[in-house]
Every structure is written in C-alpha cells, then in structure tokens.
Amino acid sequence: MATVSYVSHAGEETTVEVAPGTSIMRGALNNSVSGIYAECGGETMCATCHVYVDPASADAFPPVGEDEDEMLEATACDRESTSRLSCGLVITEAHDRIVVRMPECQR
C-alpha cells in the first residue's frame, strides 16, 4: 500500500491508501476524489486525468511515454515540467508516499 495525497486546485488535500497495481487515476475514482475525469477509463485516450506530480515524488514513476508526451502538449490546463497522465502512474511495492496536485480543469 502507498499513501497517495491528492491536492485539489483549491488546495484541499485528500489522502487515501492505494494498492500496488492500481493507478493514481483509479485510486482517485475508487475513493471518490474529484478533479480527475478519466473519460476513457484509463486507456491513454483522453488526457482528462492530468496531474502535477509533487517534485518529491518526481522520480517515483517511469518517464513520460511518447503518446503521453503528445497528449500532455494539448491538455486543457497548461503542461508543467511535472505534468503526467495519472492513468499511467501505477503504484508499486516500492512506493511509500506520493503527492499529486490537480489542475484547475481537465477539459
């Protein structure tokens, strides 16, 4: 289990436990954390699960893939250096605490 904190655009923090094998996106949906749309259900098709990964957690995940990179260029809220699509951020046994911030909008 990893502890994942979702910080809303307004600054409200929700912290939940997310099991290995589960994505940050799914962790939000499963725990009714709002701010992630995930229209496509996690298939890297829609870019509505955009998050900013806290710099402290920046190295916790594999680098941005080619499709993800293209889609991040067109997200509704501007891409930052820490931008990721959370459907591809899968929790592993190695993770302990992860903090992500949500953009103001997803579409």
Binding site: T44, M45, C46, A47, D67, E70, M71, E73, A74, T75
Partner: peptide, 8 residues
C-alpha cells in the same frame, strides 16, 4: 497514432 492531434 496521433493522440495530440485528437485532443487538439
């Protein structure tokens, strides 16, 4: 295979 175009 052009997901960026699609979103745009």
């Amino acid at each position: 295979n052009r997901p960026g175009d699609h979103i745009t």
